[in-house]
């Protein structure tokens, strides 16, 4: 049982939760994630990235979008409540080293959450960090304050121009690649389609580009292989080999079709979940 010590709604369907998980808080590193489960018997195991952590307090922070059955249910839990199971930290930590040129961190939507510890670690390593944050619209931008506090420069893009530049994140990214001081590395985390295009943008400039994948998984320990992706000519497991890979080598189309494996089920499940939510809210009223 892991207690929820703080909950905050960041946008219409994005939530932040700080949860009690002393062992994870102590051992987690940038780039790692957890798997959580809400119900002992019938629950589903879902991977969520770690946005922050406090080893002394013994807590970790997760940020999630309530889009699937389990994340919807999670969003209904309140401070003081608890999550039945949290396993972690999982995955191989981000490889951070001192770079001679800037590191560009690109975060799309809630992708900014897992990016946050990576920005932190890069700053600790003494790197210059430029962060590009993107979202469909202003309301969906998260963690701006935290990102600004750490980054040397922050560029904000929205699809509708409600905040910052009216552009996709790939636009400023391309400009940085063309600049005189070529970036040492790009870290892009966000929806698969965004990561795919970030990788495509940097490839002609041969700028190393790391992406963090969030594929379907069950155990998170390498046992099931459900999370596998094609990277170069090899099959890799996101849960143990990843979640970070060379964006130029990931077979994006294969990965995106694999992520839609259960779309029929998910649609059905979401339907049942929202009915349930409606039921609960009418009972409450």
């Amino acid at each position: 049982m892991n207690k929820i010590v703080r909950k905050k709604q960041l946008s219409s369907d994005v939530f932040l939760m700080e949860i009690d998980a002393p062992h994870i808080a102590k051992s987690r590193k940038a780039g790692q994630f957890v798997i959580l489960m809400l119900d002992d018997d019938y629950g589903e195991r879902i991977p969520l990235t770690i946005a922050d952590g406090d080893a002394e307090k013994g807590t970790i922070t997760i940020i999630f979008q309530a889009v699937g059955g389990t994340t919807l249910q999670l969003s209904t839990l309140e401070e003081g409540g608890s999550i039945s199971h949290v396993l972690g930290p999982l995955g191989t930590p981000t490889h951070i080293k001192k770079q001679d040129a800037p590191v560009i961190c690109v975060g799309g939507g809630i992708g900014v959450a897992p990016l946050h510890p990576i920005i932190q670690a890069n700053k600790e390593a003494g790197n210059k960090v430029i962060t590009i944050m993107g979202a469909r619209t202003e309301d969906l931008l998260i963690m701006e304050e935290e990102v600004r506090a750490l980054s040397d420069e922050v560029i904000i893009c929205t699809d509708d121009g409600s905040r910052g530049r009216k552009a996709l994140v790939t636009e400023p990214l391309k400009e940085f690649c063309e600049a005189e001081e070529k970036p040492a590395e790009v870290v892009a985390i966000g929806p698969p389609i965004m990561m795919k295009f970030c990788a495509a943008t940097t490839e002609p400039y041969k700028v190393p580009t790391v992406v963090s994948l969030n594929t379907i998984m069950v155990d998170g320990t390498g046992m099931c292989g459900g999370c596998r992706v094609t990277v170069g000519d090899e099959t890799k497991f996101v849960c143990v080999d990843g979640p970070e890979f060379d964006g130029h080598l990931v077979d994006w189309n294969s990965m995106m079709s694999r992520m839609s494996s259960y779309k029929e089920h998910e649609a059905d499940h979401r339907c049942r979940m929202s009915e349930k939510a409606k039921e609960l809210s009418t009972q409450g009223a």
Binding site: V218, G222, M223, C224, G225, G226, R228, V229, T230, T235, F237, V240, D251, S254, S257, R258, S260, S261
Partner: peptide, 21 residues
């Protein structure tokens, strides 16, 4: 540990599962 696959074409298509999964 990790389930073995056959290393044949198409193994990462949707609808291919390890028995473990």
């Amino acid at each position: 540990g990790l389930p073995k696959f056959m290393n044949i074409e198409g193994e990462n298509l949707v609808g291919v599962f390890s028995a473990n999964e």
